[in-house]
Write a protein that binds this DNA or RNA. Sequence first.
DNA 1: CTTCTTGCAAATCATTTGCAGGGCG
DNA 2: CGCCCTGCAAATGATTTGCAAGAAG
Lengths: 135, 135
Amino acid sequence: MKHTDELKQAGLKSTLPRIKILKLLESTRDRHLSAEDVYKIMLDNQENIGLATIYRVLTQFEASGLILRHHFGERSVFELADSDHHDHMVCVECGTIIEFHDDTIEKQQVSIASLHKFKIQDHSLCLYGKCKNCQ
Amino acid sequence: MKHTDELKQAGLKSTLPRIKILKLLESTRDRHLSAEDVYKIMLDNQENIGLATIYRVLTQFEASGLILRHHFGERSVFELADSDHHDHMVCVECGTIIEFHDDTIEKQQVSIASLHKFKIQDHSLCLYGKCKNCQ
DNA sequence: CTTCTTGCAAATCATTTGCAGGGCG
DNA sequence: CGCCCTGCAAATGATTTGCAAGAAG
């Protein structure tokens, strides 16, 4: 009952929809999914979970730190918060998402912020363009 | 008729709503406005312009390169494309927006992208946090 | 049992579109 | 005068909320 425990630790009651969604996020090859994506996959898997529930669960997961929400362009996508911080490149052609991390950029952000007496809580860096297969 | 010319150069017929919106964007103290912001300001100024028109005009301005569209969080904001490229810090408390530019970050982005054979078309970097007045 | 959850439908929000009347070139 | 533009209302797409029926502890 690993998932049950994960949920409890996050302060959430262990319910079927939550377990299924968490399982999906942990197992999907494509780490970044929108609420709609999750909904469709559940449908394909014969799982009957309402879209509203998916939105609610994803929001709860985000609030409890289990997952991260990103705004790429105008849609929200979620990813499991299991890896270290990273930024993204999104292929405008095929939607492929490449994750990357760069210390130089991270540090530079902090120093620029302090220059303006600005206290960073969060940041989003996203490069849009074409991946190597789409050029 | 400076604005008329600007519009013509952008390939747009010079009409009252367009001129007024362009004027507002050029004169507003707060360089970053959402469609709703523009709408409300127009209302306050006794200008009768429909929200739909504002969206249409802003979209046309963006397409012709007169302005830039950003997605901060979930809403779109627009700014005149009159200055050099820069990124933003947004205060989650008061909404203040600070613009900044950093060559180190820009260069680093390019080199990381090429490392992944990714061709950057655009990018968005936004720091969220608290400005010096809101801490 | 009591409370937190879910599913479904209705409600929102931001943005877009259809259409008939108006204004620019 | 023809065509592009505008206002208004209705349509959309994404996400949220109300509510009665169901599960979890």
